[in-house]
């Protein structure tokens, strides 16, 4: 197990290096950094001086080394657009995106798993069929359409919920949270729902498919023949055995939800990373885009590592190998 984790960590380092290189290339080769930083009135001599100061004349590898080293020390450079340090901009935006992603995930699990179990155990019931059909609509319609429909219904027609922003937030140290105020929650519900619908459907269908397969397995038949209560059969024996593949997909999906919450954030004007990224693209703010790229890669790598560790928690075959 230790060996396995060590191997995974080493692989992660290579992934991060590769992504850092892409981010570096973006910074170095997409357009000329100096001409983007300076105006037309800067003399050529000044430009050359700036170029030398920034180390842009150094060999490529040395520049990459400096770039990665700065990243590691938390020196992310300055935004072209706002002139603020990129690190600070990202830190301010992270809480909003993480909270949105986590709430969306929780919604999708709380609804998706029970719904998956139900539709697996009663595949022919009217309610199951209805559920499957509705959620199919849920994934077929693009996220922004769902968002706009929700805004129209709950924000405009009924006027129950706000349609943009984070509402009331509280500061817990550096973390700005909207989870502690009623107003914050009100603002969170619609975007989280919009973001969670796709994952909810995926979770439900995956749990359903896995569960139907597990319920056919020999150990379930044997447990039934031993007269174990149906509730334990379904949850203790059935559901826990469906979790390994479900966790893989949910983990990867969660990475995707957080990384690409761009559409939802833009529909609801949610001040998170996605919106920042969108603004940065509009202004070709390459330092921000580069850091965003590295950050998202790190996020995926960490999630994958957690998923691998969860396997071992769930499945004893990965944990204990020794025969007794």
């Amino acid at each position: 197990m230790t060996y396995f984790i060590a191997k995974r960590l080493l692989q992660s380092v290579f992934v991060m290096l590769a992504v850092a290189f892409i981010a570096f290339s973006l910074f170095r080769f997409v357009g000329d950094p100096v001409s983007q930083m300076t105006g037309v009135e800067t003399s050529l001599a000044d430009q050359a001086r700036l170029r030398a100061e920034l180390g842009l004349d150094d060999p490529l590898l040395q520049q990459f080394y400096r770039f990665s080293n700065n990243l590691l020390q938390g020196e992310f450079g300055y935004s072209y657009r706002t002139r603020q340090p990129v690190g600070q901009m990202i830190v301010e935006r992270i809480p909003a995106t993480i909270e949105l992603g986590v709430v969306a995930l929780v919604i999708s699990l709380l609804v998706g798993i029970p719904a998956g179990v139900y539709t697996a155990l009663k595949p022919n019931s009217f309610f199951s069929q209805g559920l499957l059909l509705t959620t199919l609509v849920g994934v077929s319609v693009p996220t922004f359409v769902i968002g706009i429909m929700l805004i129209f219904l709950f924000g405009v027609q009924l006027g129950w919920l706000p349609t943009f922003g984070r509402g009331g937030t509280l500061n817990l140290g550096a973390w700005e949270t909207s989870l502690l105020t009623v107003d914050g929650w009100k603002s969170l519900v619609l975007p989280a729902l919009t973001l969670g619908v796709y994952q909810l459907t995926l979770t439900m269908r995956l749990v359903r498919a896995e569960m139907m397969e597990v319920m056919q397995s020999d150990y379930i038949r044997f447990a039934t023949a031993r007269g174990i209560s149906y509730r334990r059969l379904h949850y203790r024996h059935g559901l826990s055995n469906t979790l390994v593949p479900v966790i893989t997909i949910i983990g990867l999906q969660f990475g995707g939800v957080v990384a690409f919450s761009i559409v939802t954030e833009s529909v609801f004007q949610w001040p998170g990373l996605g919106l920042l990224f969108l603004e940065s693209i509009r202004f070709v703010d390459i330092p921000v885009m580069g850091v965003y790229l590295v950050l998202i890669a790190l996020f995926f790598v960490v999630i994958n590592l957690i998923v691998d560790l969860l396997y071992a928690v769930i499945d004893p075959r990965l944990r204990v190998q020794k025969a007794v």
Binding site: S217, Y219, R221, F222, A223, R226, R236, D315, P316
Partner: peptide
């Protein structure tokens, strides 16, 4: 009434 199945590899819950 109880039952014994063919394949002991698959008739026990692997996670318990």
């Amino acid at each position: 009434i109880s039952m014994i199945f063919q394949d002991p590899q698959t008739s026990l819950n692997p996670l318990m």
